[in-house]
Design a protein around this nucleic acid. Structure first.
Lengths: 242, 242
DNA sequence: CGCGACTTTGAAGTAAATCAATGGGCGTGG
DNA sequence: CCACGCCCATTGATTTACTTCAAAGTCGCG
């Protein structure tokens, strides 16, 4: 996790391109940049651990960061996978509380760290920034709700169906493709399953003709079938017959 | 769910007492009140359902509201129990999305409904209000993280221990009391357990001398023991021996 | 071509859900 | 004031879906 010396102007340019900070007043952007620095983290390197003080907002320039809770069984629950243009760590930052989860790089990544004091002050001065933060946090809440919804149901088949349906593009009832954002192991962890169980569910859904699996590419053929499985009171897969 | 005709001044007075809105400019408070109304909901009456449009911020004046996700098995996952002075529905409100969960009154309750347009406009004008909303949302995120943490672990004993530890007042290593905010059935649903399992875990922890249970009052005698159970790789309770 | 990470497959053990029935607490009404 | 009924909680017996452990198979990459 190396600090990367970038000029304030360079950082400002990166920020301006991020959408998160688009259309802010030039002065605001300048102040934020002044209190920012860039770091590089390598694959599997930790960004922060649970309990660390939250003194900066992390913005992902490129790469991928995994946010997760570690549990007793050395199992882990993946909370989020953060990619280009997104941020993490706001909630703890705003409240001045320690981070509730761990963050680790899934691939070599560049991050921007915005200083807490500066950010809070600018949010006070420039309403648009505060609103952006509100929007970001709201999304996080909605995501977490989805998460609870998918990792909660009793049956693993329901969880997997639910997950696949959440990736559905729009109204379309037809088929669609999903490119898993990470390894199946991590996806399983996000659904609170073991990789073995996830594999078996994929296999079952394939046999049923609901999906096709090619590595990280999942092709959903029949989303209606997925809906049925999601709703079903408990159609036991009888996982491995014949 | 009856509308309750209150004068703008009355609503303003209630708002001002709520802490959430304390110290806002008088003008802001006045505008918010103008776009507000009060409703009364009776026990077991729904406030909104999943999928309903979010056009108001709900603030609980008194009573208790249960936020929950309903699942296939007619099981439900309790997300939050909202009480006096707290609010719910902000995330969906801010994003203009439908509510991701259901809300129902656990007891007769009085709610204040703040109009979406008004709120968003005032948040734009008055930084303090935006910051209050940010704080509220941040708390929600932290709560949801806690929730994931407690309802996720494999073992039910770990989940229950984790839950009891989260209610711990402060640094204190000694004992402490917990008054469950709702029925054991609802608490079980919050931990993603059945009431039967929760009952058995309480019973086990009692036998171990870690807690004492008297109805809704849980007396934690030995929080270290709880910590051990929470961490333990898997000390199977062997639930009902002898 | 061969190593290491990721994934799949198989067999077995177990924790928790489910089903079912009893017990306790409390309010309502006789 | 007691009796009834309802809801909540407990207890027991059974079932099963998922984890766990173990090993082979696949893929991509140096």
């Amino acid at each position: 996790m190396n600090a990367f010396p970038l000029s304030s102007a360079q950082i400002s340019a990166i920020l301006g391109r991020l959408g998160y900070f688009r259309d802010l007043q030039a002065a605001t952007l300048r102040k934020l940049s002044a209190g920012a620095r860039q770091i590089t983290v390598r694959r599997d390197e930790a960004v922060f651990a649970r309990g660390d003080p939250a003194d900066a907002l992390y913005v992902v320039v490129n790469g991928q960061i995994k946010i997760y809770l570690s549990q007793a069984n050395r199992a882990e629950k993946v909370v989020a996978l953060v990619e280009h243009g997104e941020s993490f760590g706001i909630a703890a930052l705003w409240l001045g509380l320690p981070h509730p989860a761990h963050a680790v790089a899934k691939s070599d990544s560049h991050l921007l760290l915005l200083d807490r004091q500066t950010l809070m002050h600018q949010a006070h001065v420039e309403p648009l920034l505060a609103e952006r933060l509100l929007t970001d946090l709201s999304h996080r809440v909605m995501d977490l709700m989805h998460d609870l919804e998918t990792c909660t149901p009793r049956s693993s088949l329901q969880r997997v169906s639910c997950f696949l349906l959440q990736q559905r593009p729009e109204a379309g009832i037809g088929g669609y493709d999903i490119l898993l954002p990470s390894t199946k192991r991590d996806i399983a962890a996000k659904l609170n399953l073991t990789q073995e169980t996830l594999s078996r569910m994929f296999q079952f859904l394939s046999k049923e003709g609901a999906i096709e699996v090619q590595g990280r590419l999942i092709r959903v053929l029949d989303s209606q079938k997925l809906l049925d499985f999601k709703q079903a009171n408990c159609p036991p897969p009888g996982v491995l017959p014949e």
